[in-house]
Amino acid sequence: MERVKTGIKGLDQMLQGGLLPETATLVEGAPGTGKTTLGMQFIYNGIVQYDEPGLIVTFEEFPLQYYRDAASFGWDFRELERQGKLRVIMSSPEVTHHDLTSVGGIIETAAKEMGARRILVDSISHFRRLEQDPIALRELQYSFINALKREGLTSLLTRESQTLFGENRQADDFVAFTADTYLLLRYVEIESIVQKALLVLKFRGSDHAKDIRQFEITGQGIVVRSRFEGQEGIMSGSPHRMADAFVKAFVENRGAK
């Protein structure tokens, strides 16, 4: 099966080789967990390793910020733009939505001109400000994701968690339902040290790693490390040792009988 490799060390292995072409991937995490870095790396690796031009659509940060952040990892986004392999488009969700649904829009034209295969949308959280009505918001998100697929793009959509640690309950989780792949990035506190965890929660049409992996943002971008060993409750943000959990579940319960 054809795969769209992220080129991110450790992640492609979790995804059994990479994402599926022309699918939408939701990357969710708290501020600073690395959603945008992961997205930029997906686009950058696509261009330089797999010859797949890419688009970045930003609703929040100025493109200037992307050029600077990318440069800190040694990725020259300005040069890639000059070569016609990348375009960092700043717009608003309302304009982008109208643009994508109309014929000959800016994104459609750019994708066709460049032969773009990948797109990062940073972030889809901003669609909430367009629609208060949850049903109308669902329709809007659904048509937006489908429009990206129509253009033959493999998309990565970021979404901000509302909590720094632990479980995040979104009021409307329609995007998670619609997305083909769902990656969760989390802060985890272990012995007073904050680490980062990555989980592939869903991967429609493919098997995937079920374990929770540590990852780091290095000078070369994100590197996914090994799984968390001997810990339970990682995604809660404050895990405990499995031995403690065993004692709690069996020894303490037996004592209570």
Binding site: P63, M90, S91, A110
Partner: peptide, 16 residues
């Protein structure tokens, strides 16, 4: 010039 691929309304550009 700094953000050459911006495409937006006057209202949003005013905010930027």
């Amino acid at each position: 010039h700094g953000n050459p691929n911006t495409a937006d309304t006057a209202e949003n550009i005013a905010r930027y």
